[in-house]
Amino acid sequence: MNNIWTIAKREYDNYFSSPLAYVIGFVILLILGVYFSAIMFFSSGQALYGGPAPTNEQITWWFSFLLTISIPILTMRLISDEARMGTLELMLTAPVRDIELVVGKWLGAFLYVLTLTAVTLVYPIIMDNFISPGLDWRVVLSSYLGLMLFASTLIALGVGISAIFTNQFAAFFITFGLFIFLTFFIGIPASLLQKGGEFFDYLSFSTHFFNSMNRGTINLGDIVYFLSLTALGLFTGSTAIEIRRWR
C-alpha cells in the first residue's frame, strides 16, 4: 500500500507541475461553465411558462463526455513514457511489485480527476439555490458515484494500454478509440439482433452510466461492470509489464 501511495503522490504532483493538466482542467471547466450558464438562462426563461427545471445530470453527462476525451491524454504517458525514458528500469529494479506500480499510476490519475470533479460540485450547489423545490440530491449522488466509477474504469484501461506501448501517441489513439467504441459502437448489435442483443448492451458504457447511474438508478450490475473493467485495465497493465521483463 505504501508503495502505491508513494507512486500515486508523485504522479499527482507531476500533473500539477506540467502545463498539460492545467490546460485540460481549464478547458473542461470552461466548457462546463459555459454550458451551465446556458442551461440556467434558458431554463429560467422556460420556467415562466411552466417548463422543466435544469438538472445536474445534464452537467455530469457533459463532464463524462469530456472525460472520455481527456483521460486518454492524461493516461497515455503514464507507463509508456517511463519505458521510453528508461526510468521503467528503475521502477522494475526497486522493491515494488508490478501491480503496485500500475495501481499507483492509476491512483495518481484518479486523484487528479477527483480534484477536478470536486470543483464541478459548485454547479449543483448553485443550481439547488436557484430552482424550487431544489435538486434531488439522491440523483446528484448517484450521478457522481457513477461518474467516479466511469472515470476509474477509463483511467484503468488507459494505464493498461499505456503499459503496452512505448510510444505515448500510440497509447493515446488506442485508448481513445477503445473508449469511443465502448461508448457508441459496441451497443449497435443490440438493436440489430433478434436474440442475444442484451450481451452487447451490457458491454456498453452508455448502458451503465448515461442511461442508468446518471439518471439516479443505482444497481449492483452497473457497479460490478465498472469495477470489473477497472480490474481488467489494471491487470492488463501488470501483465504488459511482466511481458516486458521477459522480452
Partner: peptide, 28 residues
C-alpha cells in the same frame, strides 16, 4: 541491491532532492 543502469535513467522533470526522496520512500 543498489543499481545504476548504464543509461542513467532519471525523471528529468523532478528536482534532485524530490527524486531521491521518492526513491527513498519506495525503499521505506
Amino acid at each position: 541491491v543498489g543499481y545504476l543502469p548504464e543509461t542513467v535513467p532519471l525523471y528529468t522533470d523532478m528536482v534532485v532532492f524530490d527524486y531521491l526522496k521518492f526513491m527513498g520512500d519506495l525503499r521505506r
